[in-house]
């Protein structure tokens, strides 16, 4: 959290045009503190459901589903213990699907972005359009053939099927993002490398990759978030063997007895990696979500 708070985006010397008109300092101060108070109320309001989820995760089941809600209780780790004990396979599957697909996305995406920016192929814009248009293809339109084909290839309920699909899902975003980072590299640097007679792999390895390392990190972050959270493919293409963390969350909802506290513990633990990564890398998050359009 400290890293996140240390990254307020605008430079310090920036004027504050919105601290109300200058018609007397005291009036401006009052408006200012009112606005600050309002900001805090809204921020805490938006955050509150998350806090409530976290509180519920530390309750016993009867406290979690009580009416009126239980505000004061003795925190317990029972739900976390149960969740950690049951979720091993799911976490392993999610880790493989997320980790391997992200590595594959980078391996395929970085050279592609290079071929779309630094030494461009013909018809760059057509290729870019093709990539982005696959993001607009509704997943439901292809799920049935994917299910049938996976069934025929005997790769249903197989984590590597998810790896392939998550790679395809994230690759267009990665190509766009990496391209926006490559375009920031000054032409002189590349010319110098070319004069030195460096080939593609050498240029990539020794000049480009170090310069765009922050960009690669931002791209990886976005791919990890989307793959880790993915539910639709996992729901339709996995059963007992390859099920991932989102499926585990759903599986904690049982038809008998109370389950809200355990559900919240699972939901909290499942979200924690992305929450922490997002808090730390707020700036990269904006750039990634806008596919490189916003710096």
């Amino acid at each position: 959290m400290s890293t996140a708070t240390a990254t307020p985006a605008p430079p310090a010397g920036r004027p504050a045009p919105d601290v109300a008109p200058r018609r007397g300092a005291s009036r401006g101060r009052v408006t200012g503190s009112l606005l600050t108070t309002l900001t805090w109320i809204l921020s805490l309001g938006f955050f509150f459901p998350v806090l409530w989820m976290a509180m519920t995760a530390f309750k016993q089941e009867n406290e979690a589903s009580s009416s009126p809600p239980t505000w004061f209780f003795t925190p317990t780790l029972d739900q976390f213990r149960a969740v950690v004990g049951e979720s091993g396979t799911y976490v392993a599957n999610s880790a493989i699907a997320t980790g391997v697909s992200t590595v594959l996305v980078l391996l395929l995406g970085i050279p592609a972005a290079y071929a779309l920016s630094i030494r461009p192929v013909e018809k760059v814009s057509d290729v870019l359009f093709f990539f982005i248009s696959t993001k607009m293809l509704p997943v439901v339109a292809v799920i049935v053939p994917i299910y049938v084909i996976a069934g025929q290839l005997k790769v249903l309920d197989n984590v590597w099927t998810l790896v392939v699909l998550y790679t395809a899902m994230n690759l267009p975003i990665a190509v766009w993002m990496m391209r926006s980072f490559f375009q920031e590299i000054p032409a002189e640097v590349l010319e110098a490398a070319a004069v030195d007679g460096a080939g593609l792999m050498k240029t990539l390895r020794s000049v480009l990759i170090p310069m765009v390392a922050p960009g690669i990190a931002a791209t990886a972050l976005i791919c990890v978030i989307f793959a880790w959270n993915e539910f639709f493919f996992a729901l339709n293409l996995t059963a007992s063997q390859a099920a991932t963390v989102p499926i585990f969350i759903v599986s904690t909802m049982t038809s008998e007895g109370l389950f809200l506290a355990r559900l919240c513990a699972a939901a909290l633990l499942a979200s924690l990696p992305v929450i922490l990564a997002g808090w730390i890398a707020q700036k990269q998050l904006v750039r990634g979500l806008s596919m490189g359009a916003i710096k």
């Binding site: 938006f46 955050f47 459901p49 998350v50 989820m53 978030i225 880790w228 959270n229 539910f231 963390v245 989102p246 969350i249 759903v250 939901a267 909290l268 499942a270 979200s271 992305v274 929450i275 997002g278 808090w279 707020q282 998050l285």
Partner: peptide
């Protein structure tokens, strides 16, 4: 920004 970082299933 935290709500955006929560897993949609959660």
């Amino acid at each position: 920004i935290t709500p955006f970082l929560i897993m949609p299933v959660a």
